[in-house]
Amino acid sequence: MAHAHSHDHGHHHHNHAADITHFGRAFGIGIGLNLVFVAAEAAGGWWANSSALLSDAGHNLSDVLSLALAWGASVLGRQPTSARYTYGLKSATIQAALLNAALLYVALGFILWDTLNHLRHPEPVNSQLVMLIAGLGIVINGATALLFRSGQKGDANVRGAYLHMLTDALVSLGVVVGGALVYFTGWVWLDPLISLIILAVVAVGSWGLMRETVQLSLHGVPHAIDPGAVRQFLLAQPGVTHVHDLHIWPLSTRDTALTAHLVRPSGSDTDFLHHLQHKLKDEFNIGHMTVQIEPDACTHGSCDAPE
């Protein structure tokens, strides 16, 4: 019986550190810009008597909190390992992503209640002010989304920030269009109606991220990895006849671990493990690998069929 444990600490490790530093700046800039905008949007919504603008301000405020939580989690995730936390605090990014998704839907619930009140009792709206502030939102949210665009495919936290900001830019565009319609038609009920549409778009658009973060929090296989393909890859390796006790789980929103028992009658060697380590990283983005090499399927005194 042979055990092998491997982590990829080479070229990929340094790129990862550079990415974290870059997105740390992006989080800081995004939070600063959006705090200023939320204050302006809330004041403008109150002054213009626009539920659509106030709804968007509430949503943007939840996004500021989301950015702050995601940033804090990324900092915790870089903390070194310890005797108690053998993987460090990487999983803080998963918990932050889950909390962010939950907070978003709580905020949507409060905004929905206020919007329904405005729909039942529509009031005059300062459409020109609404269009001006929402137009500013398109610029700020669009610019913030661009800060996270390059990293949104490899990290649920960064992807969450990117999708939130991109959605906010589109929502602001909807508010501008709604303000123009109210201005030209005088139909004040359009403002809360547009607010309802905004809430629906945000809720539907965020559901995929919510489902993904719940999956990660339950140690499910990350959605970008096909566990069947990983099993077939391991079975295709030279000398491997069976694979069992295969487990794949997220350490963070961007780090994945794998453990497996490989039945390989010829035993283990350094070249085999080195090849396996790098292929798992390159093909599946699995950077933490622990495998147990067994000479036959009856190593533990049982000849049960492998998983």
Rank of each mutant, 00 (worst) to 15 (best):
S150H: 14
L181W: 12
P124R: 01
D191T: 04
I198D: 08
L193R: 06
I197R: 02
N157L: 04
S150I: 06
G208Y: 02
R84T: 13
I194C: 10
R149C: 13
V158R: 03
A203M: 08
L166S: 11
A107D: 04
V204N: 03
M165V: 00
A156S: 15
W113T: 05
G135K: 03
I111A: 09
V139F: 15
H121R: 14
A97Y: 14
L132M: 09
G151E: 06
G151L: 03
V158T: 05
H118I: 11
L199S: 09
Q79G: 11
T144N: 14
S91T: 13
G142R: 03
L136V: 13
R84V: 14
G178W: 00
A161N: 13
S82I: 07
A156V: 15
G179H: 10
N141D: 06
P192V: 00
T167K: 00
L209G: 01
L170R: 07
H121F: 13
D168N: 12
A96Q: 13
H121I: 09
D191A: 07
A102M: 06
V202E: 01
Y85P: 12
I198G: 05
Y105I: 08
Y105M: 04
G186P: 09
W189A: 10
G142L: 00
I111H: 00
N141K: 06
S195L: 03
A156M: 12
A200D: 02
H121S: 14
V177D: 05
R120K: 05
S172Y: 01
A97C: 12
L112M: 10
M131Q: 14
V158E: 00
A101T: 12
F110M: 07
N126R: 14
P124Q: 03
P80H: 11
I94L: 11
L129R: 09
R120E: 00
L119M: 11
N141C: 09
V125I: 10
L136G: 15
P122D: 01
L146F: 15
K153Q: 15
